[in-house]
Amino acid sequence: MARFLVRRLLNYVALCLIATFLAFGLASLTFNPLAAYAERTPPPPPAAIAAKRAELRLDDPIPARFVGWIGDVALGDFGTTTTGTPIGEQLFSRIGVSLRLFALGTVIGVVVGVLVGVTGAVRQYRFTDYASTVFSFVILSIPVFVLAQLLKFGGLQLNAAAGTTILYFQGEVTPSFRGSAGAELLDRLQHLVLPTLAIALQQIAYYSRYQRSAMLDVLGSDFLRTAQAKGLTRPRALFKHGLRTALIPMATLFAFGFGLLLTGGVFTERIFGWFGMGDWLVYGIQRQDTTIVATVTLFVAVLVLLSGWLSDVLYAALDPRIRIR
């Protein structure tokens, strides 16, 4: 098993390189990082532009530039943006922001999503089932930026009703806020509620649909009947034998869902003013910055492949039938 997973991991390194190279190449071909300089008034002296050109190695062939960059990356140096700030610093601070933003929402989304799905399956064609179905379809059909705006609006109403600011909807913390550790944590939470809701609601809607059908498959199965015939009550049989088996097909979804969230939250990050990875990608494209785009792509590629790897591990942990000895 361990050997199998290690081999998988090695395959992934190659895939990561290919994905990053494609993004790097595409960005290099289309971006013109010097455009911003050329439009300055007064225009900078040609010598300065030429120096910048040399610094960004724009005259080298793209593969050579890529090899140079990826070689540095391997040594821990991600290079600099066109304006000269080191990428590495930003990268890790932005990953931190994204993690803080999405961790809570994802956990809530998975747990509640599974519960809603299971309840819907067990009470199939009753009120709870219909209610959760309607909820899911409504949420899934609202684009995330609309949902986020609606939540913002709801937050405003709540604040107005309370007469004080309970929920913030811009940034991670109040910039000038200073207080005890507890007060600072509360401030962070007040900022976290709305974006977390935006993330969690979507995930609940999404996972509950899959969990419902996975559970329905299990509900009719003979082994549930056996468990009851042994003397387990129905709820216990459902929980111990049913849910445990119905979680297996969800493993892949969970793994990929979590991996992609960190980068898929472009809208959520932008709307709520969190400077995370999604925000950075958009910024990089606006600034025509190849290095930022390539770095984000590398990060996404690593995440996707890690998710795939994680889903293999999860699957093997959950399902004895596919364990390889």
Partner: peptide, 10 residues
């Protein structure tokens, strides 16, 4: 059906 009468994961 003994194939499906036992829970596969235990």
């Amino acid at each position: 059906d003994p194939l499906s009468a036992l829970t596969p994961v235990f």
